[in-house]
């Protein structure tokens, strides 16, 4: 990456899930690996295979702190991988687990993380079927990193694709936004605030199954992780060539999350989630989809938040005054601001 001044290094913001991440993937990754499946940039790749369609995904987990209210790096890695499979319409089957841990890492924390991996895998109904452990020297890594791969099977006839969103479709979210990002920030001491907000990290097996049963014509699913809902909707808008209109007053946000966003100068639409999904659903199935989501444990606060319209591939927020704003792809990692 260069900024026009010949400055060529990886920045933390390249991993932030926003505009910089997107450019890194498009300019440096896609250009080197010619694959139509990769170029879809979906949460999982779907590979046609005689007799079945296989979904494959991979992810790395570097969250700090390792333990936070509502979860830990172990729960996050299973939930994140399972959710990536689910977003492609796959039924998750099995996960791999890679561990990179540094010399001197407390064995108690190591066990606690693995126990959490096991518990979350059991909750999601998947097994960890292969793995790898590497140890590195004290200065080569900060604590522990996890990597996963996940495989699943996409049922016959199901095709979820961001490009399938059409004018008239409804936009649903499966619950409150911003919980994970704010939970993590409130644990970082130098920000000087604490919060009872817990991360939403969770495998979405149950709500996604309910949703797809109730709304079989669902166009696509996306988990609004890094970059938040703003990044997720911008990706769908770009892939489908349609505008997405977001009714901002309909977006479910907890009071304390809204307060923390005001305090830190963040837009909740850019804050990460780890147990939520966005669904684009044809209008005649939207109510059934919403009811199905709300009948599940992790979908109780689901809401219909917008619609797809013909137009430029943009996301436009409309508030209850009728005021409109462009909701941009976030640039990179969210930083607290004072102005």
């Amino acid at each position: 990456m260069t900024d026009g001044n010949g400055n060529d290094t990886i920045l933390l913001a390249h991993g932030g899930g926003g505009e910089l991440s997107d450019r890194l993937v498009r300019e440096e990754i896609l250009s080197r690996f010619p694959s139509r499946e990769l170029a879809r940039l979906a949460d999982s790749a779907v590979i046609d295979f005689p007799g079945s369609r296989l979904a494959l995904t991979t992810d790395g987990y570097v969250v700090r702190p390792l333990f936070f209210r509502g979860g830990d790096i172990g729960r996050l890695c299973v939930a994140g991988t399972v959710n990536d499979l689910l977003m492609s319409g796959a039924t998750p089957l099995a996960l791999s687990l890679g561990v990179i841990v540094r010399d001197g890492f407390p064995m108690g924390d190591f066990r606690r993380i693995l126990d959490s991996v096991a518990a979350t895998a059991a909750e999601a109904g998947v097994q960890i079927v292969t793995g790898d452990t590497k140890t590195v020297g004290h200065n080569a890594a900060d604590g522990i990193f996890l990597t996963t791969a996940g495989v699943g099977v996409v049922p016959e006839g199901r095709r979820l694709d961001y490009a399938a969103a059409q004018p008239g479709d409804a936009v649903l979210v499966s619950g409150t936004l911003g919980d994970h990002g704010i939970a993590i920030m409130s644990e970082r001491q130098q920000l000087g605030f604490t919060s009872a907000i817990a991360s939403d990290a969770a495998p979405l097996v149950e709500p996604v199954a309910a949703l797809l049963a109730a709304a079989p014509a669902t166009r696509c699913l996306k988990d609004p992780t890094r970059g938040g809902l703003a990044a997720a909707l911008n990706e769908i808008a770009r892939a489908s060539g349609c505008s997405i209109i977001l009714e901002e007053s309909q977006v479910p946000v907890r009071e304390a999350v809204a307060g923390a966003c005001d305090l830190l100068g963040l837009d909740v639409l850019n804050v990460a989630n780890e147990g939520k999904c966005v669904a684009i659903v044809p209008p005649d199935q939207a109510e059934a989809a919403l009811a199905a989501l709300r009948s599940t444990r992790y979908g109780r606060e689901a809401a219909r938040v917008g619609r797809v319209e013909a137009g430029k591939p943009l996301v436009v927020g409309v508030n209850d005054l009728g005021g409109r704003r462009l909701i941009e792809m976030p640039y990179g990692e969210q930083l607290p601001r004072i102005c």
Binding site: D3, N5, N7, T9, I10, L11, L12, A13, Q190, L191, G192, F193, L264, G265, Y331, L335, P336, R337, I338, C339
Partner: peptide, 30 residues
């Protein structure tokens, strides 16, 4: 520094890019 300053360009680069090259910068709220 407050997070606001991290991406403000100087004549050739930003604090964010300098951090990637090992400059020591801490973002604080207060």
């Amino acid at each position: 520094t407050y997070g606001d300053m991290i991406r403000v360009p100087g004549r050739s680069t930003t604090l964010e890019r300098a951090m990637a090259r090992g400059a020591r910068v801490s973002v604080v709220y207060s």
